[in-house]
C-alpha cells in the first residue's frame, strides 16, 4: 500500500513538472493561436543555463534563480526574431518555422556545451543529510527535493490562475484570446501583449527546465520527449485552458508512473512472466496515448475547452 503511495507521489511530481512546461505552451497556443514546437528547447535552455550558472556560482539555487531572467530574455529575443512574423501565418508555417528553431537551437547548444550530459549541482541543503529525504518505505528515501517540486507545482498554478483570472493583465490576455480586434480597437497594444505572453510562457518553460535539471539529465534533445507529452497534456486538458492543463498534467503523470508500476504485474495474472514483462512495458508506454484517444473520442475539445475553440 505504501508502495502505491510512493508511486502516486512519483506520478504527482512528474505531473506538476509536465504542467509547468505545458502551461506556457497552452497559454501561447490558446491566446495567440501559435503552435510553438520550440517550447521544448526553451525548457532545455532553462536547464542548461541553470546547470551552468549553478556550477559557476557554486549554488544550485542561485543558478536556478538566475536562469529565470535569462529564459525571459531568450523568449523575448526569439519572439522578436522569429515568432512575431508567424502570428498571422497558418499552422503549417508555424510548425515548419518552429521546428527550424528546434534544430538551430539544439545544434547551437551542442556547439556551446558539447553533446555529453551536463554536470548539475545537487540542490544544497536538500541532498543528503537530515533534510535529504523522507523514508516513506523501509529502504527507500524519497528525496525532499522532489517534494519541493510538488509544492512548487501546486503554488505556481494557483499564481497563474490568479494572474489570468483576477488581474487586469490577465483580463487583457483573456480578451485578446477571444476578441483580438476589439481589444486592439480599445487602445491596447496587442502586439506588446503577445510579446509579453510569449516571453512569460518561455520563462515558465525555462523555470521548469531549471527545476527539472537535478532529476532529469541535462542533454541535447531533453526537450523533445517532454514536448510530446506536453502536447498530449494540452490536448487532453483543452487548448488554452490553464485549469485543463493542470488536471491533464496530473492525469498523465499519474497514468505514466502508476501504469509502469502496475501493468506488468497485473498482466502476470493473465500471461506467463516473460511475455507479461514485455507486453506490460509496451502497454505502459502506450497507456497515456490510449487514454488521450479515449478522451478525445468522448470530448473532442478536451476536458476543459478553452476560450478560442468556443
Amino acid at each position: 500500500m505504501s508502495m502505491l503511495l510512493v508511486q502516486a507521489l512519483n506520478g504527482l511530481q512528474f505531473g506538476v513538472l509536465l504542467f509547468l512546461v505545458a502551461a506556457g505552451l497552452s497559454l501561447v497556443f490558446g491566446v495567440m493561436d501559435l503552435i510553438n514546437l520550440a517550447h521544448g528547447v526553451q525548457y532545455m535552455l532553462g536547464a542548461y543555463v541553470a546547470a551552468t550558472l549553478g556550477v559557476w556560482t557554486g549554488s544550485f539555487w542561485l543558478g536556478a534563480l538566475l536562469a529565470l531572467p535569462v529564459a525571459l530574455l531568450v523568449g523575448l529575443a526569439l519572439e522578436w526574431l522569429v515568432f512575431r512574423h508567424l502570428y498571422r501565418r497558418d499552422h503549417l508555417s508555424q510548425v515548419l518555422a518552429t521546428f527550424g528553431v528546434i534544430l538551430t537551437v539544439e545544434e547551437a547548444t551542442r556547439a556551446l556545451w558539447g553533446s555529453a550530459p551536463q554536470t548539475v549541482l545537487e540542490p544544497s541543503g536538500l541532498s543528503g543529510g537530515p533534510l535529504g529525504g523522507v523514508e516513506i518505505v523501509a529502504g527507500l528515501i524519497y528525496p525532499t527535493y522532489r517534494l519541493v517540486i510538488i509544492g512548487v507545482g501546486i503554488v505556481v498554478p494557483l499564481l497563474l490562475w490568479f494572474l489570468v483570472e483576477r488581474t487586469r493583465a490577465g483580463m487583457l490576455v483573456r480578451a485578446g484570446a477571444t476578441h483580438p480586434a476589439m481589444v486592439s480597437a480599445l487602445g491596447v497594444d496587442i502586439r506588446r501583449l503577445f510579446t509579453i505572453v510569449f516571453a512569460f510562457g518561455a520563462m515558465l518553460a525555462g523555470f521548469a527546465g531549471a527545476l527539472a535539471s537535478p532529476i532529469f539529465p541535462v542533454a541535447p534533445g531533453m526537450g523533445d520527449t517532454v514536448l510530446i507529452l506536453c502536447f498530449v497534456v494540452i490536448v487532453i486538458g483543452g487548448v488554452g485552458s490553464i485549469r485543463g492543463a493542470f488536471i491533464a498534467a496530473l492525469l498523465v503523470g499519474l497514468l505514466d508512473s502508476v501504469g509502469r508500476a502496475m501493468l506488468p504485474d497485473l498482466l502476470r495474472l493473465l500471461l506467463d512472466p516473460s511475455s507479461a514483462r514485455q507486453t506490460g512495458a509496451a502497454l505502459a508506454s502506450m497507456l497515456v496515448y490510449i487514454v488521450m484517444a479515449a478522451i478525445l473520442f468522448f470530448r473532442p475539445a478536451g476536458l476543459f475547452p478553452g476560450g478560442r475553440s468556443a
Partner: peptide
C-alpha cells in the same frame, strides 16, 4: 524481476521504487 523501459524514459522513480 526484469524491467524493460522505453528508450525515451525520463524518470526512473517508478523503477527505483520497485
Amino acid at each position: 524481476d526484469e524491467i524493460y523501459v522505453p528508450l525515451s524514459q525520463l524518470d526512473f522513480s517508478t523503477e527505483v521504487t520497485k
